[in-house]
Amino acid sequence: MKVSHYFEFAERVTGGMAASVDHQRKMFDRVGVEYTTEPTLDADVLHLNLMGPRSVWYARRARKAGVPVVAHTHVTAEDFGDSFRFTNALARPLRPYLRRAYGLADRLICPSEYNRSVIEGYTDAPTTVVSNGVDRGKLYGFESLEAEYRDRYDLDPPTVFMVGHVIKRKGLETFVETAHRMPDVDFVWFGPIDRSLKGRETKRLVDEAPRNCTFTGFVDDIRGAYAAGDVFCFPTHEENEGIALLEAMAAGKPLVVRDIETFSWLDDGEECLKVGDAGDGAHAAADADARGDNVEGFVEAIDALRDADRRAELGARAAERSEAFSLDAIADRYRSLYADLV
């Protein structure tokens, strides 16, 4: 069996989508799936990771030629907004475009049950949920970098951290405001800022962050982030799955997350601490902003994790839960899916 595994705009797209494509190809190698990274109909299956215009063109040709089409649903209009400049304006026309594009697939691969529920509002094409997975090999030896990265960014434990592109949708405002409320705790966001691609509000939040809130920009070895961080704070408003979250779990880090549907599979108080938005649950804050951010709830959750034993307890359970998302655990699902289509 040969798969045409195409990633349009591969030279420009970074972050979680690029990591997912890398994970897929590592899984192919594990289970012996032959693949090419070029778009071609000289294959048993055409698997498209980003439904740009070239991918759509090949999908239409493949359907006429009788070649099964698989498309990953990494992109939705819901998670496109509040990312980079102009993405809010593009989110509305993106939805009808994606409806047509995803409708060309014989099978859609969704990274989570939440993503599948969103995609069901786009098309009735058959869906299969396959996690993006976590590459444990990528984290190997991360502990040895703790002293180096704490010293580089002047971080004292317990350090609250985040990993990924600095974008507003991922809860940037909440992260910065929580740092304001906790001046004795170090907060650090590891990941590219790309100021030329950011809107005015994002740049303002970064520039006006308190002294205890550091934005590192691109880091040459992402293992250093998981070595220097003690509490993974992920206040994202919208997420298809969250590879950085899976990595933090695999590294045994306790999680503080926003209580959104994407993370419904995580058990609050057992594998993470969840914070509801303003008006939701015990953490509701009277002074939350108009968007519903419950900053006080994040402060309370992080306060609870000043206790090293509690951090270790939550981190150990998160690490155990992450084993089901390892590349080895899910690799065979691709081979089975392709075999079913062929």
Results as ranks from 00 to 15, higher is better:
V295C: 01
A290N: 09
A319C: 08
Y334P: 10
S264T: 14
K253F: 05
A331C: 01
G252I: 03
C272S: 10
R306N: 11
A284T: 15
V299S: 08
A250E: 03
A312C: 07
F298R: 02
G252M: 02
W265K: 14
D303W: 12
K274V: 01
R335D: 08
D259P: 04
F298I: 00
A251L: 02
E247I: 00
I330M: 07
S264E: 14
S264L: 10
T262L: 09
D289P: 13
R310L: 12
Y334W: 15
D303G: 15
S322K: 00
T262R: 10
A308Q: 06
K253D: 07
V295P: 00
D309E: 15
A286D: 15
R258G: 11
V299D: 08
W265V: 15
A318L: 04
D268E: 03
D277K: 14
M249N: 00
D268I: 04
D328P: 05
R335E: 09
L314W: 01
R321S: 09
I260P: 06
A301R: 08
G292Y: 02
A301P: 04
E313T: 13
C272F: 03
D328C: 05
A284D: 13
D268G: 05
K274N: 03
E271D: 12
G279K: 09
G252S: 04
E261F: 11
G269F: 00
D289W: 09
G279P: 10
A318T: 07
I330A: 07
R306I: 05
R321I: 02
G315H: 04
F298K: 02
A331S: 04
I302S: 07
E323A: 10
A318N: 07
L327S: 06
D309Y: 12
R258N: 14
S322I: 00
D289N: 15
V275Y: 06
V275W: 05
A308V: 10
V256D: 03
E320M: 09
